[in-house]
Design a protein around this nucleic acid. Sequence first.
DNA 1: CTTTGTCCAAAAATGCCTTCATGTTTTTCC
DNA 2: GGAAAAACATGAAGGCATTTTTGGACAAAG
Lengths: 334, 334
Amino acid sequence: MTIYDISEKAGVSIATVSRVLNGSSRVSEKTRQKVMDAIERYGYTPNAFARGLGLNTMKTIGILCADSSDLYLAKAVYYIEQKLRANGYDCILCCTGYEPEAKVASMNLLIGKKVDAVILTGSNFVHDRNEDNRYIADAAAQLPVMLLNAVLDRPNVYSIVSDDFSSMYEAAGQMLRTGVRDILYFYNSGSYSGQKKLAGFRAAMEEAGFPDERLICRYSGSREDILSMTAHLKRLRENGLCFHGVIASDDSLALAAVKYAKQAGLRIPEDFSVTGYNNSMLSCCSDPELTSIDTRLETLCQHLVTTLMGVLAGNEMPKKAVFSGELIHRGTTR
Amino acid sequence: MTIYDISEKAGVSIATVSRVLNGSSRVSEKTRQKVMDAIERYGYTPNAFARGLGLNTMKTIGILCADSSDLYLAKAVYYIEQKLRANGYDCILCCTGYEPEAKVASMNLLIGKKVDAVILTGSNFVHDRNEDNRYIADAAAQLPVMLLNAVLDRPNVYSIVSDDFSSMYEAAGQMLRTGVRDILYFYNSGSYSGQKKLAGFRAAMEEAGFPDERLICRYSGSREDILSMTAHLKRLRENGLCFHGVIASDDSLALAAVKYAKQAGLRIPEDFSVTGYNNSMLSCCSDPELTSIDTRLETLCQHLVTTLMGVLAGNEMPKKAVFSGELIHRGTTR
DNA sequence: CTTTGTCCAAAAATGCCTTCATGTTTTTCC
DNA sequence: GGAAAAACATGAAGGCATTTTTGGACAAAG
């Protein structure tokens, strides 16, 4: 079934079929019906390749994601995909892992596939050193690049971020106000948003007059291995580090902190406070349930897609949008 | 930059450039070099559409997934994507949600995109009523269809499943042997694998002489809402149902059972046993850690991809492969 | 009856690559 | 040295839909 077959069956020209398909200019209702009927009856679908060749677009957006089994990223991908589909776009998902070369390769792959835009979910795509972000600028020379939770000021690159600095600042402030002073900051990524979070924490601690670099602690193992995170905390304590609260850059780390405290025989939240980040499903898995920061991911994703649609439609769109998070108070803080 | 430009720059015909690109038949090393140099120098990438039009394939596999933010499915997608990429294929991911029409629509969409095959992750794609599976058979008429954790005996449909019946049978048997007799079966899906699991549980209970349909309980709320699951269990108890163990069809349900038991003041595992399914990250989030069934997801995915590659290469491949799971004993059972 | 405008057919150009049949060069071997 | 075989390269024909141009048919308006 090609457009030729349909034009023959419907007794119209191929140009008319094409016009009906692309909903463009004037086609009389009668002709449209004839064509639609034929399409229906013979079950015709336009050849995507030929179409792409003609239109130079396939209505497909590329999504890059380091690891779709990460809770937060998975949700982001889910929301984005859903909303793109609602706008008539499809997605190609590439899980790159955390290796820089893989990211570049995936990016090129997507560009090669002629996607209409690329969405980078997660701040790990933007690096500290400028030349490492070259690949993003290069990509942006060819198509719009959307950044979720990362910022890069380049032409044709749009950033949608949650205000991680303020969120962390507030989380730390909140915990300080309950009287906990020796708060351990437990994080696992030095990415853009990771830095913002850390900065927010530091700012709050300095302001309160308790800055202590020893209490800033990075965990670099597997992002899923709660047990190893717990062991990490235990080791810190055994090495003489004293802390009665943990603020984590992610709920999984926070959950590990809860586990650690329980094993250490500390009561939560009386003796020990924990605040997580992302307000993921894990928040409710914990016992007691985690206080956590909700980044309004769905709103971010919605905004990202809306912005992208604007960009693709040729409108001038804001290059950067910041959304504030919300501290959800649950059982691990006073 | 088109193939014409390159052929001109390299001083050869476009056919030669094409052959170099496709690494096919005889091209002299000298010519190859000339072409490669030109490609390198001018930074040429073949137009994917034109290429697709010529080859009628884009080396892309469609993945259907009800919800990529489901822990198990997300991991499946991750493994599959990784392994496909290692084989030179890309993926288009469609998250369909659980509505039947959306599944059909997504399937058609993928076929329209001319993917080389479709992978259905999760047993929710196969329904009880035969006519509901029509869309799979229709799809299989055009391209290979791979089923993860579901079975459908149709031409060109391949199934890779974990042996849910046996796993559940073993899980129940194990718990019975520790002396727990009033085991509640807590599940949320009547999908293919859901049925197998249930059947396995029933078989074990009947064999042991304690069949009790009242203890088979379905939860139909959100798959992420642990709190609501917990409340559900509490309500059951309040309604007079008596049980000292829970076997769940998923770790999240199991986690809810753990939460419930704690709130009810029951000691785990002394007074109350819990066994989950999928051995997900949640298993270790729980306190104590969940006993759970590991379905060897990575092995399943590896096998799925291997089978698919075989099918695409035109080899005769097994239509169905069953892998046995493994009961991972942790802190919620004796 | 002419003008004007709408709708559509037919045909051709365009996009870019693959591939087959054909042509040309090089190698091989007596 | 020359013919046959092997190796390599070319030209042109697809593949399918979009878009533009030209012009025909028809209806309403002047």
